[in-house]
Write a protein that binds this DNA or RNA. Structure first.
Length: 552
RNA sequence: GCCCCUGUAGCUCAGCGGAUAGAGCGUCGGCCUCCGAAGCCGGAAGCCCGUGUUCGAGUCACGGCAGGGGCACCA
């Protein structure tokens, strides 16, 4: 159990004890929690519980706090529990215990993680781009957010499946096939033109060229499905390669088509109809979303007899639930902000509670170069792809900047900043902390010394306030992971990483290791400290899908 | 017209109902005979407006004002 939970429990037990002994009147035990005071002078953790209890206990908050403090049982981590007006309970950690975090970090490969999820099956669905073109920046953001969430949820004891949903059944893929065929015809000198709705991108011509090289002119006799299958296979393979470049890999690629093959789509419609949520109008099948608060009903099946995307989307979520996921997270870009709630309405209509299904929305990504927004237009295929961005800035800045703000804020991806090797660039600022640790260890080895020499170091020598501040910050990782894993807002992690580096660098300046004026026992202790710091930075960077370089 | 998101320092953003609102950039001023200055130290500067809920509001509710995005029988 992480320390902030232990302390909260301790507070709660103290309240119960105080009630037992009559120092506090009886009332239902609240959920106590501890938080970090803004001002470190107030202690390492604080609880405002006494103020919250004032009403039910009908006592002055200060008196309540005193009663709780008096009944706190001793804890190895706790140095003192103080009461401060108007009723705060301030807890200070024991520095001996804090120093032991060094060995805790070194021994525990899941430092900061804890078993919040208890092995529950969780699914993160993200990217889910149609297999009709390269991965765009918006989809990349969703992917980075989803992958970061998945990594955090695994650290928190969830059994996570990363899933990618393919729309391989709709009109879009037919258009894709037609686009490729037309390009083939053009390459063969035929006078045909792409329609307005066809895919305009250069990559379509490349596909056509490759097809022609393989099959020659005879391929024009093939049905459109031939072109569809070929293009889809090529494009989805390319999408996977692109995503892998930024360390995103999926466990399951779920094909929309499979929901038609196994009858799930029509089964879903039947059930919705049986439950009275479907009616016919103008030759189409409508879903009574107004019963769930929507401002108008929505079409499930078009006049043509083809389903809209909604029906398979609902069927897909039904399938997810039947596969036993207890936590479902859907990550949607701005183009899905309006449709996300409709899927949930579908799930409700099927008879499920939707409390365990979360939709995480994010805003757009735009590129900034030399302080100016780069113009992008999806029409004409004039957008910047993930591959182009990776080519230009590399994976790490993408991983960092795509999650470095709340999903509710748009991302302005600054191309100049992303590659700038300076203190302005938070990516290098964080990675440099790891590099600096590595540098100390390298120098140590170069001097012919081994790490083993330091394993019995006396950690209680780590008394410098900056060293202790770093260890306090290390402790905060558990809180950050919990926040990310319960709010599904991954941006807290890069902020934490930055703060951790901001606590580290002054420590590095102040707490030298190899200098001749450092006494040997302290040197050994600090060596352990920097070994732990290195491991912690590597851990945090890995949780963000970033690399932890030894040199830069 | 309807829906979603946003409004915090000159700029870009954190801030999970708690104590004196934090960073980065920019700006002003310092620090390399010393493990990576890709770093450190210090200064100036801020919650869109109103009403309400609360012991306590940047945070919650309602109403304004302003900006962004979305409103297909496309996905």
């Amino acid at each position: 159990m992480p320390i902030h939970h232990e302390l909260a429990t301790a507070v709660q037990q103290a309240i119960a004890q105080a009630q037992k002994s009559g120092d506090l009147p009886p009332f239902d035990l609240p959920d106590a929690h501890v938080e970090r005071p803004r001002d470190p002078n107030h202690g390492d953790y604080a609880s405002p519980i006494a103020m919250q209890l004032a009403r039910v206990a009908r006592m002055a908050p200060l008196k309540i706090a005193q009663a709780i403090a008096a009944h706190m049982s001793p804890h190895t981590a706790v140095h003192s529990v103080e009461v401060a007006p108007p009723g705060f309970l301030n807890i200070r950690l024991n520095s001996t215990w804090l120093q032991q975090q060094v060995s805790e970090i070194l021994q525990n490969d899941n430092y900061g993680g804890f078993n919040l999820g208890q092995g529950k099956k969780a699914q993160v669905e993200c990217v889910s781009a149609n297999p009709t073109g390269p991965i765009t920046l918006g989809r990349s953001r969703g992917g980075v957010m989803g992958d970061t969430l998945a990594r955090v949820l695994r650290a928190l004891g969830y059994d996570v499946t990363m899933e990618y949903y393919y729309n391989d059944a709709g009109r879009q893929v037919t258009l894709l096939g037609e686009s490729v065929k037309i390009r083939c015809q053009q390459l063969l000198g035929q006078d045909v033109a792409l329609g307005e709705e066809h895919y305009q991108g250069e990559y379509i011509i490349d596909l056509a060229r490759a097809l022609l090289a393989e099959h020659g002119e005879a391929l024009l006799a093939q049905p459109i499905s031939f072109f569809v299958d070929y293009a889809q296979a090529q494009i989805s393979a390319a999408q996977k390669r692109s995503l892998k470049r930024i360390n995103i890999e999926f466990d399951v690629y779920f094909r929309e088509q499979s929901l038609y093959e196994n009858g799930r789509v029509w089964e879903t419609l039947d059930i919705l109809r049986q439950k009275g949520y479907v009616y016919e109008r103008d030759g189409a099948q409508w879903f009574r979303t107004t019963e769930f608060g929507d401002d108008k009903d929505r079409v499930l099946v078009k006049q043509s007899g083809e389903p809209t995307y909604r029906l398979p989307d609902i069927a897909y979520h039904w399938d997810k639930i039947q596969r036993g996921f207890e936590l479902i997270i859907d990550i949607f870009g701005p183009d899905h902000h309006a449709t996300a709630p409709q899927v949930l309405m579908g799930v409700k209509a099927l008879g499920y509670e939707t409390g365990f299904v979360y939709t995480v929305l994010h805003q757009i990504v735009s590129l900034v170069r030399r302080g100016e927004q780069v113009k992008m237009s999806t029409r004409r295929g004039m957008y910047v792809t993930l591959d182009e961005l990776v080519d230009e800035v590399g994976p790490d800045p993408i991983r960092y900047f795509m999650v470095s703000r709340s999903g509710n804020s748009p991302v302005d991806f600054d191309l100049d900043l992303a590659v700038e090797h300076s203190d302005k660039n938070p990516v290098f600022y964080i990675q440099n902390a790891h590099v600096r640790c590595a540098g100390i260890l390298r120098k140590w080895h170069e001097a012919g010394l081994t790490i083993e020499a330091a394993t019995n170091a006396d950690l209680t020598l780590l008394t410098h306030e900056k060293e202790l501040a770093f260890l306090r910050k290390a402790l905060e990782l558990a809180e950050v992971l919990e926040t990310v894993g319960t709010t599904f807002e991954p941006h807290h992690l890069p902020f934490y990483a930055y703060e951790l580096a901001a606590v580290f660098h002054p420590t590095y300046e102040a707490c030298r290791v190899l200098g001749e004026d450092v006494p040997q026992p302290l040197r050994l202790a600090r060596l352990q400290f920097y070994l732990a710091a290195k491991k912690l930075f590597a851990r945090v960077l890995t949780l963000m899908g970033m690399s932890a370089p030894e040199v830069m």
